[in-house]
């Protein structure tokens, strides 16, 4: 499975949240699929050189959301692919990305129309890819 969790210290995001966010994102983008296995709490803590309680905290959050499940004696598995963020949280995250995109595009002298076209073109391609994928929106 090509899924790696990486954390950074000194970030504005606490480590447990970095892990939670990465697993959610991987599940949302399809990098992690249903019944894929995650490292055990101990293994991930050792790999990242962090306190095992931090991983446990993150996994507990993910389990509560119904995204993963610990099967005793077997490991931790992804059980569901679900909406990752609340609508509100989603908007909060989307906004700076859109701002960044517009800023860069303007700096490169693209017109509004050109930018709009570029996005539409990409969206059309994504639509094709996403077909057959049961999204929740």
């Amino acid at each position: 499975m090509a899924f790696d969790i990486a954390i950074t210290t000194g970030s504005t995001t606490p480590i447990y949240k970095q892990i939670t966010d990465q697993v959610r994102l991987a599940a949302a983008t399809g990098k992690l699929g249903v019944s894929d296995q995650l490292p055990s709490i101990r293994a991930l803590a050792e790999q990242l050189v962090i306190n095992a309680n931090t991983v446990a905290r993150s996994y507990a959050d993910l389990a509560r959301e119904g995204l993963i499940e610990a099967r005793p004696g077997r490991g931790v598995f992804v059980i569901h692919k679900r909406k990752v963020f609340t609508r509100e949280e989603g908007w909060r995250r989307l906004e700076p990305l859109v701002d960044g995109l517009i800023g860069e595009a303007m700096a490169m002298d693209f017109s509004r129309e050109e930018l709009r076209q570029a996005i539409e073109k990409k969206l059309a391609r994504w639509k094709a890819v996403k077909q057959g994928d049961q999204t929740h929106e």
Binding site: T9, V49, I50, N51
Partner: peptide, 28 residues
Amino acid sequence: LESMLYLTRRSARTIFFSSHNLADVERV
């Protein structure tokens, strides 16, 4: 850090350490 974490696998053990390194603190 790895040695410290290895040690706490025995859950009854307690580590009290002073430090100036907040990256280490954040990890363990």
